[in-house]
């Protein structure tokens, strides 16, 4: 049923949620004429991607430090995607988004970490 409701203001919407104690999670809505942050984020994500690519292709680092640097770049990339393109701070009930985010990190870290653990066998075999 498409009841025509008056859209809530940000403050009203915020006050309807239960996480009033979590002041720092208060949503921020950006309304801008030009998507500066997104364009900067896009350039940033490209830099992170190509940075990783050239580090691997040009063999500038020993393997273990290379792995560490790439993982650090990957974490930065992930944070950038979630923050800039998924607008994680803009929305109601932000506290609820923390739970799935933890889940994502758990599973992603599990996949990456365990893959490294599993594939370490190569150093012993070949």
């Amino acid at each position: 049923m498409s009841q025509v409701e008056q859209p809530l203001t940000i403050d009203e919407a915020y006050n309807q949620d239960n996480d009033r104690a979590l002041k720092f999670l208060r949503p921020r809505f950006h309304e801008e004429k030009f998507p500066t942050i997104q364009i900067l984020g896009y350039i940033g994500s490209l830099i992170l991607t190509f940075g990783a690519y050239f580090l691997v292709m040009d063999h500038v680092l020993p393997p273990v430090s290379l792995l560490a640097v790439i993982l650090a770049l990957a974490v930065m990339q992930g944070a950038l995607q979630i923050g800039v393109f998924m607008h994680v701070r803009e929305g109601r009930g932000l506290a609820w988004q923390i739970v799935p985010l933890y889940l994502v990190f758990l599973i992603a870290m599990g996949m990456v970490g365990m893959s490294i653990w599993i594939m370490l066998f190569k150093s012993g075999v070949s």
């Binding site: 599973i107 599990g110 996949m111 653990w117 599993i118 594939m119 370490l120 066998f121 012993g124 075999v125």
Partner: peptide, 18 residues
């Protein structure tokens, strides 16, 4: 189900711990 995938390639020889 996210923590079981290696059972498809045990014979790769990832070692007894894995």
């Amino acid at each position: 189900s996210y923590g079981t995938w290696v059972h498809h390639f045990f014979t790769m020889g990832a070692g007894p711990a894995v």
